[in-house]
């Protein structure tokens, strides 16, 4: 089994509302797949099921060949391997940028102060923020906060990174710096599953694009194929909406 991630017939309901209606897909190592779909279609829910911030009702999810949805899966170990980047950053408000990155290294991986700091500084440098290592979240711009969020996730050395609309809380002029970091990661071979309507990123970095609608993946393919000849009417109208909203290239 060579897939890094395999999602198999996942169902999830909130009360009477079934949000995920049998989702299946797989990702190879190094894939950068982008999940798009209208609001409420279940994109965030899907991501959160993968690192088990949300529990699925049925189906299976395999990471690196291992079923991670069994009752005796160690969720903390799973989450060390699956990083997550949030729409509204969720940086630890009381800690500096550097300490945001070192906290997990110290408390989860048990590294000593010097080792943690070395890794943190390397990751902050990777996202271009080493100079801001001593700044608190409130002293950073949105784009800088999100880059710290990415550094925090990267520092744990995950096999897979999940991004939930990482640029949609940002002022338009700050989107570029975050997209640039993400594109760099993609080209370095990081496996990424991204919820984003940032068409610039999709076109330049995405391996595949999944179109989610009403709890199902209605179409999957390389971005250029989907843009040029979408099979489904739903995909067509959705992508047209995005293109006009984002001026064609985000």
């Amino acid at each position: 089994m060579s897939d890094l991630l395999r999602v198999d017939d996942v169902h999830k309901s909130y009360g009477d509302e079934e949000v995920l209606k049998g989702i299946s897909f797989e990702m190879d190592r190094g894939d950068v797949d982008v999940l798009v779909g209208p609001s409420g279609s279940g994109k965030s829910t899907m991501l959160r099921c993968i690192n088990r911030l949300t529990e699925i009702d049925s189906g299976e999810i395999y990471l690196d060949g291992e079923n991670v949805t069994t009752p005796d899966t160690d969720v903390n170990a799973l989450r060390r391997n699956v990083g997550m980047v949030f729409q509204d950053f969720n940086l630890f408000a009381h800690l500096t940028a550097r300490k945001n990155v070192t906290l997990g290294l110290r408390k989860v991986k048990g590294l000593d102060k010097a080792e943690a700091r070395e890794i943190a500084d390397a990751q902050l440098e990777r996202v271009g923020l080493l100079a801001q290592a001593e700044s608190y979240p409130a002293e950073l711009s949105g784009g800088q906060k999100q880059r710290v969020g990415i550094a925090r996730a990267l520092a744990m050395d995950p096999k897979l990174l999940l991004f939930d609309e990482p640029t949609s809380a940002l002022d338009p002029e700050l989107v570029g710096e975050v997209v640039e970091v993400m594109a760099d990661l993609a080209s370095e071979g990081m496996t990424m599953l991204v919820v984003s309507h940032e068409m610039g990123f999709v076109r330049s970095a995405a391996t595949d694009m999944f179109v989610l609608d009403d709890g199902k993946i209605v179409e999957r393919g390389a971005p250029t194929d989907l843009f040029e000849n979408p099979e489904h009417e739903r995909t067509k109208s959705f992508l047209q909406g995005l293109n006009s909203a984002h001026g064609g290239d985000g």
């Binding site: 903390n76 989450r79 940086l91 630890f92 009381h94 906290l103 997990g104």
Partner: peptide
């Protein structure tokens, strides 16, 4: 709540998330 989710997402237990992230704030 997002502070706890972020802490748990790097692999902290619920207790660690409370102790290292919520309580200090």
């Amino acid at each position: 709540e997002g502070q706890i989710e972020a802490a748990r997402s790097v692999g902290m237990s619920h207790r660690q998330a409370i102790g290292y992230v919520v309580v200090p704030q």
